[in-house]
Design a protein around this nucleic acid. Structure first.
Lengths: 108, 108
DNA sequence: TTTTAATATTGCAATATTGCTATATAGTAA
DNA sequence: TTACTATATAGCAATATTGCAATATTAAAA
């Protein structure tokens, strides 16, 4: 089918999965890391950083924007993209809540 | 194309993305949470927990196993699945390293 | 041995994802 | 205005993902 069922899961599970999925591509990981590292807003200088065409980068950016990880503001004829700090902390909570759980030591 | 390029990314980026991708489905999130919560090994009791058929659950389990999040040992005619504690900590480090980064406050 | 239970695999159909080229759009500069 | 720059969108082809029903496999139970 290719269509993920949504009934039967909690809203939290769906949102966690949605965010994880967006981070589930090396280009988007690279974009997020880059934005966190340079700690500044950029346009599509990403063409020098990623092995992808401009349209493809644009699509990855739009997926990151869709889940709120980044935001973009218009700056003349170019775009300023950056991490959405508030949302980033939310995501840290969300994923951190899962990652922070300790598995028992007596498992198989 | 539907094929993710791998050249041009670091091994760390690819691995991070691979793990995130596997967590990018509510069924797999639910499975991981369940295993962490009940802190015990289970078979396909998951049929009572997830709105999915047995074969579909089996596939999700195998994807989780592929990236090492869970492991399964044979227990007679059934399987004991559980979180791979060592790998789980590794993943916590990996994702935590990204999530822990602080975006600057001066962004757009 | 036959049956039952638990799990995995196969094969399929529907949909999603990724990437490209080509094109559109919008602002800036000449 | 025209030309240029930066970005987005449309449209396409290739591949991946998700889910199910049907079937295989394997071990325990009868």
């Amino acid at each position: 089918m290719g269509l993920t069922k949504t009934e039967g899961y909690t809203q939290a599970q769906i949102e966690l999965a949605t965010v994880a999925k967006v981070l589930g591509h090396p280009a988007r990981v690279a974009i997020v890391q880059h934005l966190l590292e340079i700690n500044a807003c950029i346009g599509n200088d990403l063409m020098d950083v990623l092995p992808l065409s401009q349209p493809t980068i644009s699509r990855h950016l739009s997926e990151l924007k869709k889940v709120g990880i980044i935001k973009g503001t218009i700056e003349g004829s170019s775009m300023n993209y950056c991490i959405n700090a508030h949302r980033w902390r939310e995501i840290r909570q969300m994923l951190g809540g899962l990652l922070g759980m300790e598995p028992g030591e007596q498992c198989c």
